[in-house]
Design a protein around this nucleic acid. Structure first.
Lengths: 262, 262
DNA sequence: CGTGTGTTTGACATACCTCAAAGTCTGTGG
DNA sequence: CCACAGACTTTGAGGTATGTCAAACACACG
């Protein structure tokens, strides 16, 4: 059903395999409209900033490959990573009327994005219902994931927080919640990143990582995460099934026909 | 410009003074559509649960008066309040396809809400662009506020966290960020609520509240918050101006005409 | 008057932070 | 091939912010 588009401007990634904001775009009509956006791909090298806390956000970015962190820098110099994102993630959206959101988006490895001018997005939202649905879904999901992470950081012990984050990253990367022991994934993260995301010190994260390794739960070592015992990991992370499902970017079901009519 | 509606089913609050989800509804046409929803008001007594973590969320609620907390209960018995909301707040929305979101919504005092069946909302979203804009705005804002709170809980000291929360509640209640000393607001909260929201113990919150009082910054005492020195409070809370503005539920600017056209 | 809920205080325990330094690994340049 | 620098990881000793436990106090309510 996915049509090939001859356009040179439309993001080839989105056309070939719709993800993120474009995930549910499948009909010819959808692509006609998407083409108007004149998607452009941009790439960022590891460690570079995609946008800063006080940039006026001119674009929304659909991540097509690589890892990105969203980070808040506080006046006292501490940093809190609010989210890690990878392929299919949406960054740079801000509520209309809010000038800044204080976030810093950083490329953790080589990142390519599909850059949509905010103005074009707004205009398109006025015409494209499927895009509205998709954006609403993604924003709702992001809020949910963030609030669960808040509960994690606010209430759990250090070991649990680290296990929670590693499990989240594992599930995000593979896109499913059923894993066997021995699964290995590459994550372009240092222990400092984990520290900033969990509200701990890098030194203390190290001790927790060490313990998870000694307890034969997971081995996180030089950007490689290896699952030693998946069921122990689930237990150590103390997350319920519904939280895990929110970590996966899913399709939005088609709207139920019927409902309220005048 | 606000039209009087003769309907007995439409929420009178929304018709008289549109807030929350209905905030930008102002034209006759908007009300025509809203009426279809057959809004019903419901009320909840202090301490009662509006919905639980595993309820299938049949309704979305627009808060028309009172205070509500959104809380996550963790397996180990700890609780994290992710948000306090009052008049104009929207609760109960969940991303389509996510069965549960694990949240518990509790009425903190006498609460009245305008209950919109989720199915009706979905149907209406297919036709009403202003509602799409509004929902997107509110979800984007909620995510932003939550991620700022995450940074607060993850990185700040106990005293700062408490000051941050009290400042947030003050600004939410009054709807503006410029306050003089001596301002007093009623908040239906105990120190335990503040503890659950900040990730501290009630006992430690007490010590911090006591210190804020001794330092002549704020006096929080038996559900009453009195600002003793607003500029000290801002300093103690370490929040930037843009965060404060996100705490206020604002109107969504009309979509900029023009933009991308085919 | 008793009961329950919320607040306050003190003594003590501990999880986590801070500081300091050594140990790895990788890439670079001689 | 070696020397070096830089980033990351690992380990240890000691400090402190916060949690835990216990109990008294205040206040509302029946």
């Amino acid at each position: 059903m996915v049509a090939h588009r001859p356009s040179t401007t439309i993001c080839r990634f989105c056309a070939a395999r719709p993800r993120g904001l474009c995930k549910d775009m499948q009909t010819e009509a959808d692509f006609e409209t998407l083409q108007v956006l004149q998607y452009r791909t941009r790439s960022f090298r590891a460690g570079t900033q995609i946008y800063g806390p006080h940039d006026v956000k001119t674009h929304v970015y659909n991540i097509t490959s690589g890892w990105v962190s969203l980070c808040h820098e506080l006046p006292d110099g501490h940093r809190q990573i609010s989210q890690f994102l990878t392929t299919g993630g949406l960054i740079g959206y801000r509520p209309v009327g809010q000038a800044f959101n204080g976030e810093i988006a950083t490329a953790l490895d080589e990142v390519t994005v599909c850059a949509v001018p905010s103005q074009h997005l707004s205009a398109l939202l006025e015409r494209q219902l499927s895009l509205n649905r998709r954006l609403i879904w993604m924003l709702g999901r992001d809020g949910l994931v963030t609030s669960h992470r808040l509960a994690c950081v606010g209430q759990l012990k250090a070991l649990t927080r680290v296990a929670y984050l590693l499990l989240e990253l594992l599930i995000m990367t593979t896109g499913h919640t059923g894993h066997g022991d021995g699964t290995t994934v590459q994550l372009p993260l240092t222990q400092s990143h984990i520290a900033d995301a969990t509200g701990l010190t890098a030194i203390h994260v190290n001790r927790m990582v060490k313990q998870l390794r000694q307890d034969a739960i997971v081995d996180f070592h030089s950007s490689t995460l290896k699952v030693l015992n998946y069921s122990s990991l689930k237990q150590a992370a103390q997350v319920s099934q519904d939280v895990k499902e929110a970590w996966i970017i899913q399709s939005v079901p088609a709207p139920q026909s019927g409902g309220a009519t005048a």
